[in-house]
């Protein structure tokens, strides 16, 4: 429970003795990526999450072609009809096909989530790294802005400003969401940069005479790439939830655009009597969040195998074998490293 493992396993891709190397150079280059992919792939929950996410994207962009209904089309013969062969997920009060509507909303929710996630991670990485690397007044000013944005009630501000992007593009909404979601990660990046700044490879570059912005983008930010990737994923999930929450109250995506939030909001009054009106769009929303959590968790373990979780995960292999000798491959097995013939190659 509380002992350091022998460092025999420490450098995962162990030293290749010189001489034995010929013809393996190209492979060495890709080994890092392959290792990550393999680690990710043996986490079944993460694979499931990825599968789900792909399915959601396919549904959102391919779904509308499968049904004859358009999300703006009213079927005057069917108001509030339950799911059927004609209307797969039923219809709304206005007779709109819920499937077509939800898929349209899903498109918007996904694209907003993605854009906000990327934008906010970019902001946090840049601001955090520059603040910490330059220190002094740069740091003070940037951190004051971070503090201020944290003190400002972001939900309120975006909501108050919502009339201003009514009628204009939803991209304004993306920028606003992004502008209020980077501060915490920005602080994390800043404190990581403080540590990295004192790391010897950064100092080495500095003493070579490499200019500061180059050091930040060549050495510092790539060193926290795994954290930034994971953060982007988490931010995407958070943005989807934030977007739908705002839209739910009418402060987000504006008609004629629809998002999952507006779809749920429009149908919430009838939710108790016609539960499918709630459960289909809400289900899609939950699936986005869930799949992103699974993918994020899997990425963390795959990119950062030294994290406590990932390490202990590999320890489990043995005890799992010992304690549940004949257990069917269930969720437990998801964490057990795959016994592929090339599993040994992880070490070479």
């Amino acid at each position: 429970m509380s002992v350091q493992l022998p460092p025999a396993t420490e450098p995962a891709p162990g030293p290749i003795p010189p001489g034995e190397a010929d013809g393996r150079t190209a492979k060495a280059r890709t080994s890092r990526l392959r290792l990550t992919v393999r680690r990710f792939a043996r986490n079944r929950l993460a694979l499931f999450g990825l599968f789900l996410l792909v399915l959601l994207f396919l549904g959102a962009y391919g779904g509308p072609f499968l049904t004859k209904w358009d999300y703006q089309q009213h079927d005057f013969l069917n108001f509030l009809s339950s799911p059927s062969g004609d209307h797969w997920w039923g219809t709304t009060q206005g007779g709109v096909d819920l499937f077509a509507l939800t898929m349209r909303g899903l498109q918007k929710s996904l694209i907003i989530g993605l854009l906000v996630g990327v934008l906010s991670t970019f902001l946090s990485a840049t601001v955090g790294a520059f603040a910490a690397y330059f220190g002094g007044w740069t740091d003070r000013v940037l951190m004051w802005i971070v503090d201020l944005l944290l003190v400002m009630p972001s939900f309120l501000i975006v909501a108050v400003l919502s009339p201003s992007f009514r009628g204009s593009t939803w991209l304004v909404f993306v920028v606003l969401l992004g502008a209020f979601s980077w501060m915490i990660t920005g602080r994390v990046v800043r404190s990581m940069t403080f540590t990295l700044k004192d790391r010897e490879f950064v100092k080495a570059a500095k003493y070579m005479g490499v200019p500061a912005p180059v050091i930040i983008f060549r050495h510092i930010l790539p060193s926290m790439a795994s954290m930034l990737i994971i953060d982007t994923v988490i931010q995407v999930g958070a943005a989807v939830i934030g977007e739908s929450s705002l839209s739910y109250f009418g402060f987000g995506v504006q008609a004629p655009d629809v998002s999952l939030g507006t779809v749920i909001a429009d149908n919430t009054t009838n939710a108790s009597t016609y539960p499918w009106l709630f459960f289909f769009p809400a289900g899609c929303l939950v699936l986005i969040g869930l799949s992103i959590s699974f993918v994020g968790d899997g990425l963390r373990d795959a990119l950062d195998p030294n994290a406590a979780g990932a390490k202990a995960r590999s320890h489990r292999k043995k005890s799992g074998k010992k304690q549940q000798p004949k257990r069917a491959p269930s969720a437990t097995a998801a964490a057990v490293p795959a016994q592929t013939p090339d599993a040994q190659e992880t070490a070479s």
Partner: peptide
């Protein structure tokens, strides 16, 4: 011995 990702570590 410990199980590890690379196989059993005979510490």
């Amino acid at each position: 011995s410990f199980p590890s990702e690379a196989g059993e570590v005979q510490a």
